[in-house]
Deep mutational scan, measured.
Amino acid sequence: CHSECLGNCSQPDDPTKCVACRNFYLDGRCVETCPPPYYHFQDWRCVNFSFCQDLHHKCKNSRRQGCHQYVIHNNKCIPECPSGYTMNSSNLLCTPCLGPCPKVCHLLEGEKTIDSVTSAQELRGCTVINGSLIINIRGGNNLAAELEANLGLIEEISGYLKIRRSYALVSLSFFRKLRLIRGETLEIGNYSFYALDNQNLRQLWDWSKHNLTITQGKLFFHYNPKLCLSEIHKMEEVSGTKGRQERNDIALKTNGDQASCENELLKFSYIRTSFDKILLRWEPYWPPDFRDLLGFMLFYKEAPYQNVTEFDGQDACGSNSWTVVDIDPPLRSNDPKSQNHPGWLMRGLKPWTQYAIFVKTLVTFSDERRTYGAKSDIIYVQTDATNPSVPLDPISVSNSSSQIILKWKPPSDPNGNITHYLVFWERQAEDSELFELDYCLKGLKLPSRTWSPPFESEDSQKHNQSEYEDSAGECCSCPKTDSQILKELEESSFRKTFEDYLHNVVFVPRKT
């Protein structure tokens, strides 16, 4: 048989008469490798580009789960590009990614509803959504962080984005990388972005840091009482949809009607710091009717980097990364020049730590249904340095008659930039024990000054392991946590139920 035959053949030295091919099969003959313009397919066939392209389009058009959109890589027609490569849609070739590779997620039936953290986790790592997304989240724990972890990498949506009755959302900033909504599939009414009845939605994105392009379709905003109209108009300008909307697409009466839409800028007039305090004062603000001013709200939190936005980490279910302080308005003076500047002394802060701070007014709604208010920009203030805590785990070892090696770990709280350490030492008198000992005694162990690591005695271990207080009263049991108490109650309830079950099964009433 021919060298490319495997198993047997019907005619000697003829690659077209093989029972099976050793390498690849091409047009009725066995070959060692697939010549151009053919590609290896499933490690035994040679196919042309049209064959591989037909497989790709067949799966793409069917949208069946589990099928493969075949691509070409290293002269092979394979189910998908290997790690580190992405497909070129024009020629199906796998090309190296520039940075992290995109991950295209194809949605069944063309859309997916995100109504819980669990459903959001199914899209973790996706960068391109081939379909439409509907966000409908009523509640949950730590929602802002969970949504950002699972949806934060999405850069492109081919269909539309719909935010509907998501009472738990305060902001859409968890879509931190969303840059493009194509609108290839539109919501009824030709809408590519749809926001309806979101009672706590206050911000779409921080438009000073976020760009969003909507290729096709219109915007729809109705019944978002805490979303200011200025935020919607800003989205029109940034996304390129200005002029597409009709009169009733953006409701003037049901958007922002319960919001404090600040239209003035508060400026800080005085800032002073110490290692654990920050004193702030800002310019006074009074609405047209000074009785509408209820006070100020001061927001602050630790910020290692200057990239904080107002609604980071917030949701309507209680999660809030900001510390909020309510401040009463100052006494009002008739003389504008003698107006008191409101302020606040922030206490209990960490030394040498940068804080993000902003302040906003708290006002009631005027009778004319106009909203007044003022808010400052987010500023960054760093507390002063102070003395560091003591170095940890000092170790001293003498390696000769004239040297001592000293080692330690950095302090747990540096409280500033540590530039150097101060080492103090003092000579001590020799131990009298060394002169009084009889060095001729056998088995004498000389006193040693070398360091030995501390260890816990058996008594201390027994005390720590004991669940009861000892007789001397030195140790006591740790208080039980809520989960331990709940577990004990469940076990007790189970024992009672099981005992009742045994009584009912074992003891049967005697027939009379």
Score class of each variant (00 low, 15 high):
Gly131Arg: 00
Gln382Arg: 12
Pro304Val: 04
Ile157Arg: 00
Gly131Ser: 02
Lys177Val: 08
Arg291Phe: 05
Ile135Glu: 00
Leu293Trp: 06
Trp207Asp: 08
Glu148Leu: 07
Glu246Asp: 13
Tyr300Gly: 01
His341Arg: 11
Glu155Lys: 06
Thr254Phe: 07
Leu151Thr: 05
Tyr355Phe: 12
Leu201Pro: 00
Leu196Gln: 13
Ala168Gly: 03
Ser230Leu: 12
Glu184Gln: 08
Glu310Phe: 04
Asp206Trp: 02
Leu161Ser: 00
Lys301Met: 14
Ala144Val: 15
Leu123Ala: 05
Ser389Leu: 05
Tyr372Leu: 12
Lys226Trp: 12
Phe365Arg: 14
Asn248Pro: 07
Asp292Leu: 10
Asn340Ala: 07
Leu349Gly: 01
Leu279Arg: 12
Asn334Leu: 04
Ile188Lys: 07
Phe358Leu: 03
Ile405Ser: 14
Asp257Gly: 12
Ser173Gln: 06
Lys267Asn: 09
Ser376Met: 01
Ser192Gly: 13
Trp322Ile: 02
Arg369His: 06
Ile154Pro: 00
Leu349His: 00
Asn141His: 09
Asp206Ala: 14
Gln199Ala: 06
Pro391Asn: 02
Ala144Gln: 08
Arg247Leu: 08
Arg124Tyr: 01
Tyr191Asp: 02
Tyr160Phe: 12
Arg332Trp: 06
Leu196Ile: 12
Asp377Ala: 08
Gly373Arg: 02
Asp367Tyr: 13
His233Ala: 05
Asp335Arg: 13
Thr309Gln: 11
Tyr305Lys: 04
Val238Ser: 13
Leu293Cys: 07
Thr185Met: 07
Ser208Gln: 10
Leu196Trp: 12
Asp257Ser: 03
Asp257Gln: 02
Asn200Thr: 03
Leu143Ile: 15
Trp344Ala: 13
Thr127Ser: 11
Phe174Arg: 01
Val397Phe: 10
Lys409Trp: 12
Ile188Arg: 14
Ala251Lys: 06
Pro288His: 11
Glu237Pro: 03
Asp315Tyr: 05
Leu153Glu: 13
Leu107Pro: 14
Gly159Trp: 02
Lys226His: 05
Ser269Val: 09
Lys253Gln: 12
Gln258Ala: 04
Val117Met: 15
Leu161Gly: 00
Thr383Trp: 00
Ile379Thr: 15
Leu227Asn: 00
Trp205His: 09
Gln258Trp: 12
Ser389Val: 03
Ile405Gln: 09
Arg332Ser: 09
Ile250Glu: 06
Arg179Met: 12
Asn340Thr: 13
Asn340Lys: 04
Glu187Asn: 14
Ser208Trp: 13
Cys261Gln: 03
Thr215Trp: 01
Leu178Ser: 00
Lys242Phe: 06
Lys301Pro: 00
Tyr223Arg: 10
Ile379Asn: 04
Ser338Thr: 10
Pro351Thr: 04
Pro411Ser: 02
Thr361Met: 10
Phe174Tyr: 14
Ser401Gln: 10
Phe221Ser: 06
Thr273Tyr: 07
His233Val: 07
Lys209Ser: 08
Thr254Gln: 15
Leu123Asn: 01
Phe311Met: 07
Asp384Ser: 06
Asp249Ser: 05
Glu236Ile: 03
Asp367His: 12
Ala195Met: 11
Leu252Ile: 09
Gly318Gln: 04
Ala144Cys: 08
Cys126Thr: 01
Gly243Phe: 07
Val390Thr: 12
Ser401Asn: 13
Val397Pro: 13
Ser173Ala: 10
Pro287His: 11
Gln354Asn: 09
Thr113Cys: 15
Ile214Trp: 05
Asn399Ile: 10
Pro394Leu: 13
Asn248Ser: 12
Glu246Trp: 01
Ile154Met: 14
Ala251Leu: 06
Ser158Ile: 13
Thr353Ala: 05
Thr353Trp: 04
Gln339Ala: 10
Ser192Leu: 01
Ser208Leu: 14
Asp276Val: 01
Val359Gln: 00
Ala374Gln: 03
Cys126Glu: 00
Lys409Thr: 14
Asn340His: 08
Trp286His: 04
Glu368Phe: 13
Asn190Ser: 08
Pro330Leu: 07
Asp315Ser: 10
Val325Cys: 14
Tyr194Phe: 11
Asp326Arg: 02
Phe174Gln: 01
Asp197Trp: 02
Ser239Thr: 10
Glu236Thr: 13
Ile214Met: 14
Ser401Thr: 09
Asp384Leu: 06
Ile357His: 00
Gly348Ile: 01
Cys228Leu: 06
Lys301Glu: 03
Gln339His: 10
Lys277Thr: 09
Glu187Met: 14
Gly152His: 09
Gly139Pro: 01
Pro336Thr: 08
Phe358Ala: 15
Ile357Pro: 00
Ile163Tyr: 01
Ser119Gly: 14
Ser398Phe: 03
Asp115His: 11
Asp197Met: 06
Pro336Gln: 15
Glu302Met: 09
Asn248Tyr: 10
Pro225Gly: 15
Leu180Trp: 15
His106Leu: 07
Pro336Arg: 07
Leu151Asn: 00
Asn150Cys: 05
Leu265Lys: 12
Lys112Thr: 04
Ser269Ala: 09
Ala251Asp: 02
Phe299Glu: 13
Gly295Asp: 08
Ile114Asp: 00
Leu279Val: 12
Tyr191Val: 04
Thr386Met: 09
Tyr160Trp: 03
Ile157His: 00
Lys360Phe: 02
Leu298Lys: 00
Arg247Gln: 06
Leu229Asp: 09
Pro287Arg: 04
Asp312Ser: 09
Trp352Thr: 10
Thr361Gly: 13
Ile114Val: 11
Leu204Ser: 05
Pro225Trp: 05
Trp282Ser: 00
His222Tyr: 02
Phe174Glu: 01
Ser274Met: 13
Ser333Gly: 06
Lys301Ala: 12
Arg138Val: 13
Ile135Thr: 04
Asp328Lys: 04
Trp322Ala: 03
Thr386Tyr: 12
Lys360Asn: 15
Phe296Pro: 02
Glu156Tyr: 07
Tyr167Gln: 15
Gly183Pro: 03
Asn263Ala: 12
Thr215Ser: 08
Asn190Leu: 08
Phe175Val: 06
Thr273Met: 12
Cys317Leu: 09
Gly110Leu: 11
Trp322Tyr: 11
Leu108Asp: 00
Val128His: 13
Thr353Arg: 10
Gly256Met: 07
Glu246Asn: 10
Pro411His: 01
Ala316Arg: 13
Glu122Tyr: 05
Asn150Tyr: 12
Pro284Arg: 07
Glu368Met: 12
Leu298Gln: 00
Gln199Leu: 10
Gly318Ser: 15
Pro342Phe: 08
Ile278Arg: 00
Ser396Met: 04
His341Gln: 13
Leu133Ser: 00
Tyr160Val: 03
Gly373Leu: 02
Cys228Val: 10
Thr323Arg: 04
Val170Gly: 15
Lys177Ala: 08
Glu246Ile: 04
Ala149Ile: 10
Phe358Arg: 12
His341Lys: 11
Leu349Trp: 00
Asp292Tyr: 07
Asp315Gly: 07
His233Asn: 06
Ser321Asp: 15
Ser402Cys: 04
Gly131Pro: 00
Leu252Glu: 04
Ser274Lys: 11
Asp206Ser: 06
Tyr223Thr: 14
Leu229Ile: 02
Gln203Met: 08
Ala303Leu: 03
Gln339Asp: 10
Ser319Pro: 06
Ile188Pro: 06
Tyr223Cys: 09
Leu180Pro: 00
Pro288Asn: 10
Asp249Leu: 15
Ser269Trp: 02
Ser401His: 13
Glu109Lys: 12
Ala195Lys: 00
Lys226Ser: 06
Gly140Ala: 15
Phe193Pro: 01
Lys407Gly: 06
Pro411Leu: 01
Gln245His: 05
Asp367Gln: 12
Ser269Lys: 07
Lys350Asn: 03
Asp257Ala: 15
Cys317Thr: 04
Asp312Gly: 09
Ile250His: 06
